[in-house]
Design a protein around this nucleic acid. Structure first.
Length: 640
RNA sequence: GCCCACGUAGCUCAGUGGUAGAGUUCUUGCAUGGUAAGCAAGCGGUCACCAGUUCAAUCCUGGUCGUGGGCUCCA
């Protein structure tokens, strides 16, 4: 037998006989690796472990620890699920079943919709399949034969896919089977079904065939799988943790906001939620002032002609609300930019004035499909911390840089240390020349590169008038949330007739940057609620201090203290209820109030306060002045 | 918008083809308290809405509205 040399990721080389399988290679490297090996890479290409070596190559054995290993593992899990479904519901037709982030799914067309009880049955059947310990076997088939095979099996979705590949000139396809189940699949797969010990089916949902809303609605079953039971448990715990933080639940518990049938997707802010809103607004307003933004207020409803001129009617109509006033057509603003342009246009501008920065906490309305509404995260009206920077082209990059730095600083201030950046490029529905788009996109990249910020591209996800930088904040359980944007717009100023007089005495068209930092105030508050799980830091807590008199005798003492604390701008209230101390503490604790002040005879006589912290419990007695100092010390934003 | 599930007291939820229950909140008594629930009574519901089936519907059927999970990650 001829010898060949494989090179492992650490650079070491090993000799094997031609025809040695990767499984054997794994065994020769180590027992433990062989036990955990799921697949392998030959010269960077992912393959089954059963693949045999034909020539010298770079080899990497894949375990669950690698992203490729996870994908192989979960993709195989989806096949095992499909096999279980086949046994339970023999007439099922199969679409696709890929691995996804944190799990897998498979799309089926079933005769009767699947129920949650069906999930349990499918899980049990999967367990049986795992215990049957069938090997995954790969074979090649001529595409025409495969089409016939799947036609005979009445699997139209597979046939549709293969007919497309055939039209593209593909000649063969690969087929995998494990036990009594055969599926079209490019693989690779785990060697044997018995590898899949730790899995869980999570939910059933509808999903359109090929994501096209005009086509067949399929049943999608979501699941997840891990190599080790311990990791599955940890993942399920994380899901539980996320559920506990759900802002819709906490918002109700803390009486922050509500939704009503009378206005689906339109949030109602209750007094305590309005405080959160106002705190954020004040932070942004103060920072805007420092950056020389000029705050304005513009109308909610404006004549439709403006929206035709701006391009919104043509490109954003589906998301807009329309109305009629005195037999003329009006639209409810989905964005603030045209209004700001009207303000800009209201007077003549010299190049010496630029950049002009106009900001607004603008309430915009956007029609969203009923099925996508989701608490504060997806609403039909929301307040943007919006601003538009009108500048000369040569100022553009510096202004973008300032917007980015500003955005990052705010995130840090309110508690998000980490954020991720994307550039979203030209979408299908858009206005402006290719040249302008390229130019604008290049400017965004330049600015990010100057700041040394890594970014990823999101193709075709820009606004209709220009590309955007998207900022995603990462919360404390590592979820990403899209918040702010910085967008460059070469179109709208021209379309709406904006000009400035240059040093050459001629009229020029300014460039416009659209920027928002929190994005939607509503959404951002939702994110903060989940990030902090409702346990807001002192600066954000709607009620910062609760005074708890033990007996009616201390009520006046409490009122007196309340007044002093209020004069210090501390948000304070008193629990006057005729209840025992333990009861009142419990209530405050459940309301997640940072500080409780217990007031009894002792405190009243000694003119002291007994402090209890939400997190640390009883802090002992203090005098009023020290308590105020303690609050002031803790009541600061990050890195102010 | 589409698919599936859900909608019972302010809140969290049981329940039944014969017009409803618990805990909590709230009100009122009693208890006058020391760091996460004192005792008792009471108030509170057109069982989302509209039709239909039925002697009888909160329950069954259909529709409407709302809520939830999805509908991007291409064998």
């Amino acid at each position: 037998m001829a010898q060949l040399t494989v090179t492992l990721p650490d650079g070491s080389k090993r000799e094997y006989e031609t025809g040695t399988t990767l499984e054997q290679v794994a065994e020769s490297i180590g027992k433990r690796l062989a036990k955990e090996a799921l697949g392998a890479k030959i010269n960077g290409k992912v393959v089954d472990l059963s693949t045999s070596l034909k020539e010298d190559a770079d080899i990497e054995i894949l375990t669950f620890d690698s992203p490729d290993g996870k994908e192989i593992f979960r993709h195989s899990a989806s096949h095992i699920m499909a096999q279980a479904v086949k046994r339970l519901f023999p007439n099922t037709k199969y679409a696709i079943g890929p691995a996804i982030k944190d799990g897998f799914y498979y799309d089926f067309e079933v005769e009767t919709p699947l129920s949650p009880e069906d999930l349990e049955k499918i899980e049990s059947e999967m367990t049986r399949i795992v215990s049957e310990a069938s090997d995954f076997k790969k074979s090649e088939m001529k595409i025409a034969d495969a089409i016939q095979y799947f036609k005979d099996r009445d699997d139209p979705y597979k046939v549709e896919m293969m007919e497309e590949w055939q039209a593209q000139g593909q000649e063969t396809v690969s087929i995998y089977n494990q036990g009594d189940f055969t599926d079209l699949c490019s693989g690779p797969h785990i060697p044997n079904t018995q590898f899949l010990k730790s899995f869980k089916l999570l939910s059933i949902a509808g999903a359109y065939w090929r994501g096209d809303s005009n086509r067949q609605m399929l049943q999608r079953v979501y699941g997840t799988a891990f190599f080790k039971e311990k990791d599955l448990k940890a993942y399920l715990n994380r899901l539980e943790e996320a559920k506990k933080r759900d802002h819709r639940k906490i918002g109700k518990e803390l009486d922050l906001f509500s939704f009503h049938e009378e206005g689906p997707g339109f949030p109602f802010w209750h007094p305590k939620g309005a405080i959160l809103f106002d705190i954020l607004l004040k932070i942004i307003r103060q920072e805007n002032d420092r950056q020389h933004y000029q705050e304005v207020k513009t109308p909610i409803i404006l004549n439709e002609s403006l929206w035709h001129a701006s391009g919104h009617y043509e490109n954003f109509k589906e998301n807009m609300y329309f109305t009629e006033i005195d037999e003329r057509d009006y639209a409810v603003k989905p964005m603030n930019c045209p209004g700001h342009c009207l303000i800009y246009k209201n007077s003549l501008h010299s190049y010496k004035e630029l950049p002009i920065k106009i900001s607004e906490f603008g309430l915009v309305h956007r029609h969203e499909l009923s099925g996508v509404l989701h608490g504060l995260f997806r609403v039909r009206n929301f307040t943007q911390d919006d601003a538009h920077v009108f500048c000369m082209p040569e100022q553009l990059k510096d202004e973008i840089v300032k917007c980015i730095e500003y955005t990052a600083r705010i995130y840090k201030m309110v508690g998000f240390e980490k954020y991720n950046v994307f550039i979203a490029t030209r979408p299908e529905k858009s206005i402006g020349s290719d040249e302008d788009w390229e130019n604008a996109t290049a400017k965004l990249k330049e600015a990010l590169e100057e700041l040394g910020l890594p970014y990823e591209i999101k193709e075709g996800e820009g606004a209709f008038y220009g590309p955007k930088i998207e900022f995603n904040v990462e919360d404390c359980i590592e979820r990403n949330w899209q918040c702010g944007t910085t967008q460059v717009d070469f179109s709208m100023p021209g379309r709406l007739g904006l000009t400035y007089e240059g040093s050459d005495g001629k009229k020029h068209t300014p460039v416009m940057i659209h920027r928002a930092i929190l994005g939607s105030m509503e959404r951002f508050i939702g994110i903060l609620i989940e990030h902090y799980a409702g346990k807001f830091p002192l600066w954000l807590s709607p009620t910062q201090v609760r005074l708890i008199p033990i007996h009616e005798k201390q009520h006046d003492y409490a009122r007196n203290l309340e007044k002093i604390l209020m004069d210090e701008s501390i948000r304070v209230d008193i629990d006057f209820r005729d209840e025992k101390l333990g009861y009142k503490i419990r209530k405050s604790q459940l309301e997640k109030i940072p500080f409780m002040v217990i007031l009894g005879d002792k405190e009243m006589e000694e003119k002291t306060l007994s402090i209890r912290s939400r997190t640390q419990g009883d802090l002992g007695t203090s005098d009023l002045e020290s308590f105020i100092q303690l609050l002031k010390k803790e009541n600061t934003l990050n890195s102010n």
